[in-house]
Design a protein around this nucleic acid. Structure first.
Lengths: 239, 239
DNA sequence: AAGTGGTCTAGACCACGTC
DNA sequence: ACGTGGTCTAGACCACTTT
């Protein structure tokens, strides 16, 4: 096991990635054990024969992935409990359907201005009164794909009242017209109610994946949406 | 709307984040519309009164988030379909339970060396023959939390045969003794079978969140695991 | 008080992809 | 061929913490 080889002889790859890979190798080989202190950036830079900024880039990347923990003055340590992070892409429904090679279509089932149920109101904040309620279905190749139940804050997005959403899905329209700054998402499994089952062409009680999302623009809540996916729907990702 | 203010008068925040915020503001304000070409790094650097590397850092960050698309020679464009990415943290089960303020305990239900079902075998690759099969339950405050069904490749992790997993969960042991390089994850909803329902103290047919994970060390498959969560379990994250 | 990472700069060279 | 982003460097100053 080589100790201090000045930059491994790898080509094509940027130096910081080579450094990153070498540090990763040492961590995995237990050369630096979990919880152990890794040499400082200047030391590593000299060892690898590169600039400190390059080592910094490598370590910063590893820190973002949760494999090392960095603190000023305290130094860099190998993470005790490397929390792996899986990133799920949240595309617009139309794109998601088309990516599966299916044709997309959507239909608005109900559209009303109404008082939200307590559950929705509490999540959006008590100050939100005027809400547009939209229920719609997204289809993939004419099969129900997602049943969407959405509440939109009219104060945050006044233009929403002018749009029928017959040609553009609410989802896509909002991305264009009311970009959000941040949001909360929860993933869960639920048994379909009779009504949902009918809409999704499923059987009552079928297990479905339900995603709830609330988005804000700064401090102003924009929308709450509950997406009930057809049975069998799966989310995939890699780590 | 100020046009070319050399660095906004924001304090405490690193310059690259100020630049990033300003670019983000212009995108959201439609100053640069979706699909539009953003000025080059050198131009922006001069406009903001900072070094090109600083602008680069800001734009690189935005690119990673999917808000802009960058290509050499072609330049930087505002993304047409900003794919938001939600990052889910995948902690060791024990940590996840303890983070909820509950006490953790686990129990091995079954342990055998067996031929995997076709479904598992196909996912791990046909070359994998010797597998350890482990079924176990994870408890939170003595209530079933996750039912785990796991297959471990004995060739990749020979030491696995020496461990009883009565004191350390397989999950945690593998993190220590067989770190993986990458993996696939799928999230789905399923109705519990009668057997599962009994283990999870649920009713047959209850909707549960099921996570399947396959991990590799380079090209060697390490383990396949199916995690059946107790009814009502939710994953949360922010975007 | 001192050491470590965080950031910034000015300049340079290079790789890629468009032209 | 040429322009843009990608990377690298050497040096500097600063912020945060631990000692």
């Amino acid at each position: 096991m080589n100790e201090a080889s000045p930059l491994a002889t790898v080509h094509g790859q940027p130096t910081w990635q080579v450094v990153r890979a070498e540090i990763l190798r040492r961590i995995r080989a237990r050369y630096w054990e979990p919880g152990a202190l890794i040499p400082g950036e200047m030391v590593l830079a000299k060892k690898f024969g590169c600039a400190r900024a390059t080592v910094n880039r490598a370590l910063r990347d590893l820190a973002e992935e949760g494999l090392v923990e960095r603190r000023r003055k305290a130094g860099t340590r190998v993470a005790l409990h490397p929390v792996r992070k899986a990133t799920l892409e949240i595309p617009v429904t139309r794109i998601e359907v088309e990516k599966r090679g299916a044709s997309y279509r959507h239909a608005v089932i109900e559209r009303e201005t109404a008082k939200p149920p307590e559950l929705v109101a509490s999540k959006l904040g008590s100050g939100v009164k005027k809400l547009l309620h939209l229920r719609s279905l997204h289809f993939a190749d004419d099969h129900p794909f997602i049943y969407e139940d959405r509440w939109v804050n009219q104060v945050a997005v006044p233009d929403v009242m002018k749009e029928s959403f017959e040609h553009v899905s609410t989802n896509e329209w909002l991305v264009r017209n009311a970009p959000f700054t941040h949001g909360d998402i929860t993933f869960g499994a639920e048994n379909t109610t009779e009504a949902e089952a009918q809409l999704l062409e499923a059987h009552e009680g079928d297990a479905i994946l339900v995603i709830q999302r609330i988005t804000w623009s700064e401090k102003m809540p924009i929308t709450f949406v509950r997406l009930a996916h057809a049975p069998g729907h799966r989310l995939r990702t890699t780590i």
